[in-house]
Nucleic acid binder design. Sequence first.
DNA 1: AAGTGGTCTAGACCACGTT
DNA 2: ACGTGGTCTAGACCACTTG
Lengths: 246, 246
Amino acid sequence: MKFSVSKEPLYAKVKKVILEMIDAGELGEGNQLPTEKVLSEKFNVSRATIRSALQSLEDDNIIRKQQGVGTFLTPQNQEVKMRIDKVKGFYHLICDTGHEPSIREEGIYKAPVDKKISKQLNLPGTTEVLIIKRTLMGDGKPAIHIREYIPLTRLTLSPTVEELPNSIFEISEAFCRQRIEYSISEIFPVTVDASIMEALNLPKRTPILKLEEIHFNRNNEPLIFSEVYVNDNIIRFNVFRTRDRF
Amino acid sequence: MKFSVSKEPLYAKVKKVILEMIDAGELGEGNQLPTEKVLSEKFNVSRATIRSALQSLEDDNIIRKQQGVGTFLTPQNQEVKMRIDKVKGFYHLICDTGHEPSIREEGIYKAPVDKKISKQLNLPGTTEVLIIKRTLMGDGKPAIHIREYIPLTRLTLSPTVEELPNSIFEISEAFCRQRIEYSISEIFPVTVDASIMEALNLPKRTPILKLEEIHFNRNNEPLIFSEVYVNDNIIRFNVFRTRDRF
DNA sequence: AAGTGGTCTAGACCACGTT
DNA sequence: ACGTGGTCTAGACCACTTG
């Protein structure tokens, strides 16, 4: 087994190859993978590297390991695609559901900062924020309505509607020159108000999921606040939990 | 540094000691931890063991590592306690919010299986299920209403209300002789119906979070179905996401 | 008893960010 | 150039499940 030279670590390449072989049915006789020792010999890497690759596959719920027994494929019908803790961006999420993604831009405004948001972002009450409203569509149907709140003090450039990238991560890098390192979200059930109702084309009083997100840079400073409303007719979130020992 | 003999792995002990030292303010001068090399010498363990301990602390959002820079404490006010992907049991969750937990038992019934549930648990439509209804209270106020559905075919003993342990994991082990290895949950926003409204003491039309959970044994067989209704006045869920490279 | 995954070590080199 | 965390190796022993 040979691997191309690149900056990607070995275990990541091994992971990809194992995934391809699983998909091709070449691995997992009777749903059981070869032992770690056998795999490490087959791929000419150390057992530690194989374990890194398998660990990553287990995190993705592709396989499951049992000490003293072996490594097994997770049944296809139990694959969990929409894990809420694995969301890397909502635009990409639309694709993952098998829908054709598009974005309906609904405007960019400047406005004085709301009290709640100034508190979340640790801002003085006098700051202004840039508000970006957009709805992500799946197959032309409204799936996720997002409102981003970016303090003007963070902006190095003012975006126009045409220039906006798909995700808040790209927006932050392009217009704030700041990299979002991590995000903390709070999950709420809410009843839609008139504007959300309209954006997502939902009937009155529909209960929907709202996420309130704070995005941080590597200095632990809050950069951007987001409100995300999810139409659960199109997007449903899952949680996957395993028993852990310590 | 010495460690007591026990079956707990070394990295777990090291993790605990590091946590204690962080809480005592003995580690993290200027919010930065010593380097992995220094820590491995201080604790007399290999760097790999230190890395396992730190990895676990990073998963818990206690620390954050930056390649080429160092390891840093997460600010206290950004600690995320109620991570929905880290829930190990709802009874324990009440404690974590700082509330005094108690359980209000609301009965054990046998009933024919509902079509939706028979599908989720892969059961013939003729099976009967045992339904356990209970409300978890925080400081005497209703916080979480749970309905467990256990196929009678899985039961080796019939529980009485008095015998019920706190968690579904213990119930499964005691009365089904089956260990729950992992669970898959789906998250819904719903409007409370009359019975939930009463159980959680909420006004009409309150939107709340519902979790539908399937618990599996190690053979990937679905064992138990649970419906969980969460009063978000008391319990609020969070998601924590970091940027990952591969 | 045999075989699996889990833990641990010592040492090496690489990739990244800062100086 | 330097120091940090990230990756990788080879080998050893432990803990767990099954025959």
